[in-house]
Simulated assay, not measured.
Amino acid sequence: MCPADTGEGAGNTEYGRKAFKRSRSHFADRITADGRDGWPVEAGRYRLVVSRACPWASRALVSRRLLGLESALSLAVADPIQDDRSWRFTLDPGDRDPVLGIRFLHEAYDKRETNYPGGVSVPAIVDVPSGELVTNDYQQITLDLATEWSALHRPGAPDLYPEALRDEIDEVAEGVYRDVNNGVYRAGFATGQEEYDKAYADVFRRLDLLSERLRDRRYLVGDTLTEADIRLFTTLVRFDAVYHGHFKCNRNKLAEDPVLWAYVRDLYQTPGFGDTVDFDHIKRHYYVVHTGINPTSIVPVGPDLSGWLTPHHREQLGGRPFGDGTPPPPVPAGEEVPAGHRP
């Protein structure tokens, strides 16, 4: 499951009568430069397991690309459709991850702790030599990739969490998380009208505030890309495809907000963002797995994706996407999103 799919009232297929509450990451060890939790940063030692469907895992995908960590931190992509045994490696030959040698992500969780409480969530970082899960703390993973992994960043990598702007980034990201990242889930998994109405109001109140903030500035904090933009992007890129209809966040489509639509297209067209997005995986996961919301499991054909590549004109606001750095190189061979899954 994605982290936000594992809270009270949410499950793999059915949703209870409690209000949606996101589960906390159970495994919160950190991989650091000094190895203080027992997990030192080391090129080639760890494997990042993601689903391209999951917005929380997608944060790590974007960060890894922008920072150029592909050769240092290998990637496993799970099938967008889990079953009762958790995320499956059915996209790989023999239905096994070729590095970890496992069929299901729960095997790495079980190596770390048998019968642990909670679901099997992505993103997850696994220690390759032992096969054990290290962390599923999606909030911390990207911050550590930006800071603790700096010795392994590519030349020209952007500073996604600049020290001078951290307080502002954290403040903006907290509002985005509470009302947008998690807000769409609160609306989608609501089991009562009042609960849904509150979540719906929070989502669009925050989107209106963000639209106003971004009206005359290219990025959320400062004049370069930061962690704050990554955290907002992964929800916005899914908004019209799944949250507008599937989660009933339907006051308006993102494409009907000129500012936010231009902003998210600007990010999508920036190397490191759109080249990690798989719209096929996104739609099939939400509409097939959430049978408590969509019992027929019918996946809608739309929306039309061609608009993602249209001019956004946000460059007129200035800003330097990568600061004093450079764009990431092309996506490594074998990690490309299939042509039929993108505009």
Results as ranks from 00 to 15, higher is better:
Val277Ser: 03
Arg213Asn: 04
Arg85Pro: 03
Glu174Arg: 15
Pro271Val: 09
Asn181Glu: 11
Phe322Ser: 07
Leu75Glu: 06
Asp97Ser: 00
Ile31His: 10
Phe233Pro: 05
Ser211Asn: 02
Glu194His: 15
Glu171Phe: 13
Ala28Gln: 14
Val41Pro: 05
Arg65Leu: 01
Ser150Phe: 11
Tyr138Asp: 12
Phe89Leu: 02
Arg205Thr: 13
Ala10Val: 10
Arg217Ile: 07
Leu209Val: 12
Gly9Gln: 01
Asp97Arg: 05
Ala146Tyr: 06
Gly183Asn: 12
Leu75Asn: 09
Tyr185Cys: 00
Pro338Arg: 10
Cys2Arg: 14
Gly16Ser: 13
Ser63Ile: 07
Arg85Trp: 13
Gly7Tyr: 03
Val41Thr: 12
Gly319Gln: 05
Leu75Phe: 07
Gly192Gln: 15
Asp170Gln: 14
Thr135Ser: 12
Pro332Ile: 03
Ser74Met: 03
Leu309Asp: 12
Gly175Pro: 04
Arg103Asn: 11
Val120Ser: 13
Leu61Val: 01
Gly292Arg: 00
Thr191Glu: 15
Glu148Leu: 08
Ala187Trp: 08
Arg320Cys: 04
Arg36Gly: 12
Thr114Asp: 12
Gly94Lys: 07
Val122Pro: 06
Thr191Arg: 15
Arg284Gly: 09
Glu113Arg: 15
Arg45Asp: 09
Tyr200Cys: 03
Glu336Asp: 13
Thr276His: 02
Arg17Asp: 13
Ile81His: 09
Thr291Trp: 12
Leu69Asn: 09
His285Ala: 06
Val62Cys: 02
Leu145Gly: 01
Val172Ala: 11
Ile169Trp: 02
Val62Ser: 04
Ala33Pro: 08
Phe247Met: 05
Asn294Asp: 07
Gly302Pro: 02
Asp208Phe: 03
Asn182Ser: 13
Tyr15Leu: 14
Ala60Val: 07
Gly9Trp: 05
Pro158Arg: 06
Asp197Ile: 07
Val264Lys: 07
Gly131Met: 07
Ala108Gln: 01
His313Val: 02
Pro295Gln: 05
Trp56Asp: 04
Thr114Glu: 14
Tyr15Glu: 13
Pro332Leu: 09
Gly318Thr: 01
Glu171Arg: 15
Pro55Thr: 06
Arg166Cys: 11
Ala333Asn: 11
Thr90Pro: 03
Pro303Cys: 05
Glu336Lys: 14
Arg206Asn: 12
His312Pro: 02
Leu67Ile: 03
Thr326Gly: 05
Val134Ser: 03
Gly131Asp: 08
Val299Ala: 10
Gly119Pro: 00
Thr310Leu: 15
Gly11Lys: 07
Glu335Cys: 09
Lys198Glu: 15
Ala78Gln: 00
Phe89Asp: 00
Asp110Glu: 15
